[in-house]
Design a protein around this nucleic acid. Structure first.
Lengths: 338, 338
DNA sequence: GCAGCGCTGGAAAGCGCTTTCCCGCCACGC
DNA sequence: GCGTGGCGGGAAAGCGCTTTCCAGCGCTGC
């Protein structure tokens, strides 16, 4: 066992050419190699089952074919969709994606970035949401700098202001549009299940939603904060119920939270939408099969992943580019007229 | 920009020690280094912000810190759960996971394995399900051999017979137990929405289910094959409906397919479970919030990922180890007495 | 007819690290 | 007192590849 790996040198020797020539043939270069030699090398490589040593190539070229992808939780459909987009693009470009998960701990983001830097990843997509945690944020910024200085590119999904390329979903605008749409249904009293207050995404959606209510001349909503997860939504909804709120419509800042909230309501015998309407944000694919179908703001998640990967892969200038992605309000069965 | 990276050599020079000593201090070795020098090196490294070049280390050590993970579709909860388990274990071990997706094309598995081999990944977890496609299968086997010969370890989730470590869910036993449980509810006529006939997982579950029915003295079910996806389930259910089957209970070999099937039934006004009962397999987390709650066979998906990662990470002997994971029948609201 | 150019092939110098080998030093035993 | 070992430190040989630099050669242009 452990038969040693076939090296370029062996291929070269076997084919009767120099190392340089073999390298040029097999791994492409600006230089031309005669048809004759070229074919001989190719054939020998094939016969010997040569596979280039990626580490050696990375070392020699001082750049690898790794692309990092950092998410909070890969089981969350929001992230897995983005991941799908990123991997598709990366694989098409012949690159390999490294998956890092933070488990929602902000400090892990910087750690992962450092690891990625050690591996000389050529690019990283940061899909975790930005927090307002000063310390974590500045450490992250430092790592991003180090990473880019080293020649790597960084793109963020949904968190601007880090001086990197960014894909920005219309969180605020989406929240606002949703609020208006719900107001048009006749609702007057709203509650919001907001995520953790330090998450910028959650804040933006909430702020947009409030603005939309203001537009419609409606009083600000009750806000209940909770974790950015299904269980967070469940707990927040329970809290809402306990508070004897008179809200007729609930906005959960995330579909995943909305799912949890719906479960809580259902459990307590609250009918949706007869007793209370509910809406989410993201339009994750699993929503297709929810009953009642959840109203939400659709974000093209997979596409966002593709865009981020695209940004990070084609060089671009020094300027940090920003691609805005609009959210589209989709009203379904979970929201009714009031 | 592109400030050159700090190298070990610089650290060594700055600290006034040799390259060898610096390496020994920073990356550990059997050799001892005096307290004095050791501390000096550590401090200098810190000051300079030294990060070892992973490619160079991989090259010199002839082994990397990469672990591969191959799945069909990361947005499928089945795979994302497994992925979560694998990444957790890998990250704890200080390794980095490389995510490869096949998009359900069997030949991609071999390709990815080859890429992973190029990167000298130290281990790979193959979570994609095995097909009966001869050509793809033998190419895969060859790649697995090459990979292990090179010193890497391979573990499969749910596909034995490749001579690798394996985590085997009780597909057959689970299907059988489920069939019996459903028979006990009084159902006599069954339909199965089977996955693609060449997928071993699908076949096993189906075979188990049939055996269970036989146990209960019930006639074999109608089987409708479809893609292993939500849409495949939807289409298969539509086909079932069109066939005017008199089945009172439907088994979809996958929860994801069951979700699609439920959507189809709902759309056609078929009530679940009043008109027809339905059960799935896997117990993916999203099921928690389905209405009606889906009966299924629970598999500890994330744990399976952890086990696979565990197998692949601790050396083990030459023997291919197999860890069996039992499925547990969980009857919920989607199945009723008949 | 010859300087000069473009083109192909090979030798060899790295890329940043690990690890072997060697050297000097000290403590020890006879 | 001197050979022996053991031990901490450094020089240097790789690891497998890329790429620069040089040599040789056939052409072109004056």
């Amino acid at each position: 066992m452990s038969a040693r790996q076939v090296t370029l040198a062996e291929v070269a020797k076997q084919a009767g050419v120099s190392l340089a020539t073999a390298s040029r043939v097999l791994n492409g270069s600006t230089r031309q190699v005669s048809e004759d030699l070229s074919e001989r090398v190719l054939r020998t490589a094939e016969e010997l089952g040569y596979v280039p040593n990626a580490s050696a190539q990375a070392l020699a070229r001082n750049s690898s074919s790794l692309v990092g992808l950092v998410v909070h939780d890969i089981t969350d459909p929001y992230f897995s969709c983005i991941a799908a987009g990123v991997t598709r693009v990366a694989e098409e470009a012949g690159l390999v994606v490294v998956l890092g998960t933070t488990g929602r701990r902000p400090e892990r983001e910087a750690e992962l970035l450092s690891t990625l830097r050690a591996h000389r990843a050529r690019a990283v997509v940061l899909a975790g949401s930005r927090t307002t945690d000063r310390a974590a944020q500045s450490r992250l910024a430092a790592e991003i700098d180090a990473f880019t200085e080293q020649g790597g590119r960084v793109a963020c999904v949904s968190q601007a202001k880090l001086g990197t390329d960014t894909v920005v979903p219309g969180n605020r605008a989406g929240g606002r549009a949703l609020a208006r749409a719900l107001a048009e249904l006749g609702h007057k009293k709203f509650a919001v299940l907001g995520g953790p207050s330090e998450l910028v995404v959650a804040r933006d959606r909430l702020a947009g939603f409030k603005a939309g209510l203001t537009d419609a001349g409606i009083a600000p909503p009750v806000v209940i904060n909770g974790a950015f997860t299904r269980d967070g939504g469940y707990a927040a909804a329970m809290e809402l119920l306990a508070s004897k709120s008179r809200a007729t419509c609930v906005f959960a800042v995330t579909d995943v939270m909305a799912m949890g909230a719906m479960a809580a309501l259902r459990e307590r015998g609250v009918r949706i939408p007869e007793d209370i309407s509910i809406a989410g944000f993201d339009d994750i694919p699993t929503l297709r099969d929810t009953v009642p179908a959840l109203s939400t703001v659709r974000l093209p998640l997979e596409e966002m992943g593709e865009i981020a990967a695209g940004l990070v892969l084609d060089a671009g200038g020094d300027e940090a580019r920003t691609v805005r992605v609009a959210g589209e309000v989709v009203l379904r069965a979970s929201t009714a007229h009031n």
